[in-house]
Amino acid sequence: AMSQNLRGAGGASQAHPSTYMYERFATYLEEESGGSMSLSLIGPEVVTLTQVPDALQSELINIGNLLPLFFASDFPRTNVAGDMALIGRLSHAMALAMTEFVVNCEPCQEEFSNKGMVFLGAGASDPYVLITTTPVRTAEDLQGLRLRSGGAPFSRWAENFGATPVNMPVGEQFEGLNQGTIDGTMSSIVDMLSFRLVDVARYVTDVPLGTYHVTSNFTVNQSTWGGMSEDDRATLLRAANRANPTLTDRWGFQLPEAARNAVAEAGIEVITPDEALLEASNAFAASDAESRISADELAGDFAAMVEKWTTIVEELGDDPVALSERAMEEIWANVDLSTYGI
C-alpha cells in the first residue's frame, strides 16, 4: 500500500488518559501496517476535546477522540447509552458494550454519518464515587447536600436522595469545593489528581454511581476513511481495536490506583457507606434503567449489551490484550469494511 500519514488528536493534556491511548495507537498503527501508515499526534494547543468535531469536519485532523455527550444535539440517539450511566459497574464491560451497541445501532451510525464521521470503538471510566467535604455514610447524610453533577442520570440519583444537583464546569469543582459553593461532586476518583481535588476534598464515599462510557475514541473523518483501500481500513481498525482497551485500562484502573494512593497520602477519609445506602443506590440505578428501557428501545439494546459483556469480562478479566482479541471476534469480525461507515 501507499504510505499514508494521518493527523490524530486526543484533544487533551499530557496526563489525560486520551493522550496515553493515542500514543499507543500511534505505535500500533505502525506495527499493524508494517510502517506504511503513521500518525502525527496533534496536541491540545491545536485541538481540544470540544473542538474535535469542527477539526474533523474541516479536515484539520483525520482522526480524533470525540465525546458525543458534549454535542448532545448532534448525537441524541447515541447518547441514549449515556442516560443509562447508573448501571455502569465494570469499566471494560461498559466500554465494549458501548462499542458493540454503536456498531449495530442504525440511528447511531446515521448520526456519525451525518457529521461525516466513522466510529471505531469506545472506552470507559471507573465507576464514579462521591467526593465531599462532609462525611456521607448513610442516605440521611445526603439530604440537602449540593452535589456537582456531570449529567442527567447523576442529577436524578442526587435528587432521589434529597441532594441538590448543581451544574458546574468540571474545571470549577476545585474552587467550588474549596469555597463551599458545593458540598461534593459525583466524579471519577481520578479527578482527585487531574483537578487537584486532593487539596480540598475531605471524604470519599465508595458508593458506585455509574460510569462515563459514551466515547468515540478513534473517530475517523469519513472522506479519509472512504479514500482508503479496504486493506488499509482493516489495518486502521486493528490498530484502533488494540488501542481502545488501553483507554479503559488507564482511566478505569491505572489512574484510579494512583489517585487512591494520593488520597491515602493526603489523609482523606475513604468511607464505605452502610449497607442500606448501597442497597438503595443500586435499587435506584436499576429502577432508573428500567424506566429508560421502557421509554426507549435503544436503551434496551444497550442494557442487553452491558449484560453480555459483563459476563464476558467477569470470565476473561481485565487484560487489555485478551479483551481486544475478544472484541475483534465478537464485534468487528461481523463488520463489512467495504460498506461500514461509508
Binding site: 454535542f71 444535539s73 448532534d74 453533577s149 442527567a152 444537583p165 451544574n167
Partner: peptide, 16 residues
C-alpha cells in the same frame, strides 16, 4: 440546522 444546545441539570438550553 443541528439546533445545538447544552445539557444542564434539568433541561436542555438551546444555544445556537
Amino acid at each position: 440546522r443541528s439546533g445545538s444546545f447544552v445539557e444542564l441539570v434539568r433541561f436542555q438550553m438551546p444555544v445556537w
